[in-house]
Design a protein around this nucleic acid. Structure first.
Lengths: 217, 217
DNA sequence: TCGGCGCCGTGACCAGGGTCACGGCCCCGG
DNA sequence: CCGGGGCCGTGACCCTGGTCACGGCGCCGA
């Protein structure tokens, strides 16, 4: 992710804007650096503006009474986060923290609303983007409610691998666990079991998917 | 819910339309009756149009391999369902069935898209509506992942009761269970335990909330 | 070089909750 | 009036997965 402009341009719904408009927007964005583990905002906070990741990545998550953490979404460069409060004026439904050092652009709330009013095409793009998010949440609900840990982990691995037959795990077991709604130990054990069954081979942080059929069984 | 027009008018995002437009829309809507348990569409089906409930109610749900069912949403008169595919062209992410006899209005896909283009305010309202849904899903994820059955059931009861101190259960235990991601037997047992603890009193289908504090503990 | 910290693996334990089976109740239709 | 189907309550059983504890490894900075 080179320039601020590039970052803005790669946000799905901002892509609909023409170049001059984008430049104007760019000029009004503040930039801020967050260190790994630093918190961008907490559940319940009032909207801060439209946040666009220029570099790094962040997690959107909820924490429960026991301190366990459920990650809703992880976003990387060229993605925006936490638009929800912008749209409905309600506070953030979840918290957000940097999972590595991160550079963030912030577009003021009013600026974004002005854009929305002036560019009808933007609204349609926003709708598409929200639809995406909603689908992901529905998927998550389905998994949490109806699938066991083994299956959820397998699905995550398959998703991370894409069409390749190996994954370089981008996160710790802790983070994997929070993503699929369980705890570190269980991820560790489940991976071990998968390896033992011959479904995967584990080389440190790299995982080879040996038998996709067996994995998703 | 008297007339078709009233039904349309009470859909949150259609409210933004002026009366003549709404009448024109009304004229182009098909009406259909579904019997209890009849299926409106299945996960993966292509979009059928914008569906508005005139009378009755439906559930949006997912089913898992073991046949268990997770309800995502229950919608009643004056609400629309399954807009997602309309917005992003993808197939339905979940299935939908009538939980009682239901009268449904169907607005053709193209008609809705035409409306979207011609009425910018509609887009903004749609965004608000989607945001709502997204919030509900986030809430559901949080509960499924981080709360136990006792808590989820208590929350549901509190939500159903609103500010009243009693609820007339609108659904069977089976449906309650599917809503909070568990099974009939557990709901039955958990209610019994709550009663025994003095948190509620159960009179058939009617539940008195005796001790809200103890309930949400 | 050493000490500490973050991450990972594993064993032992425990409990929430899912499954199965069965019996009772209520209501409706034949 | 009876029979059956839908719904509910409950006991017995078991297993997934969460908790606790501990030890090992690798890395980095003092």
């Amino acid at each position: 992710m080179r320039s601020r402009l590039e970052a803005l341009r790669s946000v799905p719904f901002l892509r609909t804007l023409d170049e001059p408009t984008l430049k104007a927007v760019d000029a009004r964005c503040a930039e801020k650096v967050y260190l790994k583990n630093e918190i961008l905002f907490l559940e319940g906070d009032p909207p801060k503006g439209l946040l666009v990741i220029r570099e790094g990545s962040v997690k959107i998550y909820k924490v429960g009474g026991t301190g366990r953490e459920q990650i809703l979404e992880i976003e990387g460069p060229g993605r925006s986060v936490a638009e929800l409060p912008l749209f409905d004026g309600q506070p953030y439904p979840a918290s957000c923290a940097a999972i590595e050092d991160t550079i963030l652009l912030t577009m003021p709330v009013r600026e974004f609303h002005a854009l929305l009013e002036r560019h009808p095409a933007l609204s349609r793009a926003v709708i598409a983007s929200l639809s995406q998010r909603l689908r992901r949440m529905v998927f998550l609900v389905r998994e949490l409610s109806l699938e066991d840990v083994r299956t959820r982990l397998a699905n995550l691995l398959l998703e991370l691998a894409g069409s390749s037959d190996q994954v370089e795990l981008p996160w710790t077991h802790q983070e994997l666990a929070a993503r699929i709604g369980t705890v570190r130990e269980i991820v560790s054990r489940t991976l071990a079991r998968m390896a033992q069954e011959g479904a995967v081979r584990i080389e440190g942080r790299r995982i080879h998917l040996l038998d996709r059929a067996r994995l998703s069984s």
